[in-house]
Write a protein that binds this DNA or RNA. Structure first.
Lengths: 357, 357
DNA sequence: TTGTAGGCGTTATCAT
DNA sequence: ATGATAACGCCTACAA
């Protein structure tokens, strides 16, 4: 019998006429049989329950360990109705902002025993819907969404799923209770204010047409800085890309006609494209024109010239969002709107205004 | 009775003295009761089984849809023993190479009805071990690993888990059967060869001490290019960082003593740091010194000067890895080692050697 | 301290 | 074409 119980998990060749490999994972009952106890006892021992004899527990744990037994989280999830799983949706992981947030989320989730399902939406509403449905079927305990462009779409789904949701830099913050947001207004106001102090008066704003709320807030901060210095905000000095370098180049080109001496970009990716376009036109940064970004992505400090930008503590924001979600999942209340401070980092892409004006 | 069956899923306030909200998700039995059929019939209808009357099926689907019913993938996974789930481990998502691969994997997985668990290892073997254990408990159908520095560590786990594993740019390819790798040797040989053609003879190599196999192959390609031009490879012209800008700066500094006129970097992140250091020393790229990278990350084309580099089709590699895993999971055989071509992209960071030599 | 008996929400295997 | 019934692997009463 002992012979029979051993199975052939160790990779022994299957018996003749038995083409079926993968002898099936061990279950709690297998461990129970080997340890000569009932399976509930094994369950208790593995959860370090005080209701089981210390020696027995030790023996069971040893056996389970030697056998390489891993309790099935799916079976457990079925009975406990909690999967210790969350769904994380991003527009695309390939975006450096998103991947930093994902990193912070993942670390925090793991530290608390949660696994995370990652899904790209590609900013496609239909895909985003499917992704959230998949999460619903997976019975995730909570959902985290980064930079969604279709936030409102979640409302009906949320109602059905009955799981908490937290958004990071959502574009429709009004619709949701829980979110982690950067101080868009203050951050961009600081960047524009910095340029004003350097003597610039023809300052442009290169935004993100898909940034909605974030873009609106940053633009408002930009306006506030100019207005408090009594500088009129001219519409020829405002343009929009899509948050990526390619579109930023086109938008920058259009902006050039208004001859700005400085430009505030919606984010670092936009600054990357804008700067590239400026060079193509023979303009030197910052001598001829100053440029600021937003995010402080890893490459900002290594650009030529190093980029003056507004730092977002992206990883930390991911962590904060996950911590908020953890609270909600355990039934506690959580601060609805978490607002994170942005920090202006002055580098070499901005300089005192010179000639050319 | 019908009254009673309705439950209060629609968000009706809970009855007095019933503090317990979240009325519990609908199950297949609820749908069955409403449709006045048995639950297996519902199951069949929802799977579009031909074994069920077309009209009945239609009615069931309509009811399920209106009720917002979502079948539990966890219950299904328990009985079918397949979760349609894979585990994806990366050293860190914050690395742009990794996030591109993740993107390709995720898209492909989703298109085939798989959800992906993402986990960072932070290049910490202990954490990586825990992560894989979590995957085992989650009963993932397969595992994908990117740029692992601890590949060998998987062997024993793999034996126990009995799930297929595919590695992307693994550092210990010998140990595993299935992997997707870039043509490291040929790629770097092309980059170095390009510099040789431009007349350079004092060419340095700035590698990644944690790149193991990848670094070894790229270095070999570098050597091959020089040797085929009868240029001796001097050890003072070889240094190693860790694949990131910071360490690259330090390594570059040390390399400067040997006065190279060109430098091949292990990857674009390394090139970022190396270039930054060169500027700090007043050297102009490419006038005084040429620089090449590897990867062709999104920012490479936007640097000043635009970076000459070796392109890896990262997303495509993620897709190939996932497709290989899909084959393995469905029991088919798959090409063990998939080798992807690298492409030299010549931009402006390299130029014909001038004076200063 | 331990064992017995459900049940979690599906799919699979039989009947009918 | 449909319905009973039995798993799947675990946890949680409750009983002993």
């Amino acid at each position: 019998m002992a012979e029979k119980d051993r199975g052939n998990a160790a990779g022994v060749a299957p018996a003749q006429g038995a083409p079926r490999r993968s002898p099936r994972q061990l279950s709690i009952k297998d461990i129970a049989r080997i340890a000569r106890v009932s399976h509930p006892t094994v369950s208790r021992a593995l959860q370090n329950s005080p209701l089981v004899n210390a020696k027995t527990a030790e023996k069971i744990r040893r056996i389970a360990d030697e056998a390489g037994y891993r309790a099935s989280a799916v079976a457990r999830g079925l009975v406990t109705r909690r999967t210790r799983t969350i769904g994380l949706v991003v527009t695309t992981v390939a975006d450096p902002f998103a991947s930093e947030v994902v990193c912070g989320v993942e670390q925090t989730a793991n530290d608390h025993g949660y696994s995370v399902f990652l899904a790209d939406s590609n900013a496609d509403p239909e895909r985003e819907r499917k992704v959230v449905q998949a999460f619903a079927e997976r019975r995730v305990d909570g959902i985290l969404v980064t930079s969604s462009r279709v936030g409102a779409l979640y409302l009906p789904m949320l109602a059905q799923m009955q799981v908490p949701i937290v958004l990071v830099n959502d574009q429709y913050p009004g619709a949701f209770v829980h979110s982690v947001m950067i101080a868009n207004f203050e951050g961009m106001r600081a960047a524009a204010g910095h340029l004003v102090e350097l003597g610039h008066r023809r300052i442009a704003y290169l935004g993100d047409q898909f940034g909605y709320q974030s873009d609106a807030e940053r633009l408002a901060g930009f306006r506030a800085a100019l207005e408090s210095a009594s500088i009129p905000v001219r519409s020829q000095l405002i343009a929009h890309g899509d948050g990526k370098p390619e579109a930023a180049m086109a938008a920058m080109k259009a902006l050039l006609a208004a001859r700005p001496t400085a430009i505030c970009c919606y984010n670092d990716m936009t600054a990357l494209g804008a700067t590239h376009q400026l060079r193509a036109h023979g303009l030197r940064v910052p001598k001829d024109i100053s440029v600021t970004g937003f995010d402080d992505l890893f490459f900002a400090a290594y650009l030529e010239p190093p980029l003056t930008t507004v730092r977002q503590p992206m990883r930390r924001m991911g962590q904060l969002a996950m911590e908020s979600l953890l609270r909600l999942m355990s039934g506690e209340e959580s601060v609805p709107q978490i607002r994170v401070d942005a920090e202006l980092v002055v580098r070499a892409s901005t300089a005192r205004m010179s000639g050319r004006g």
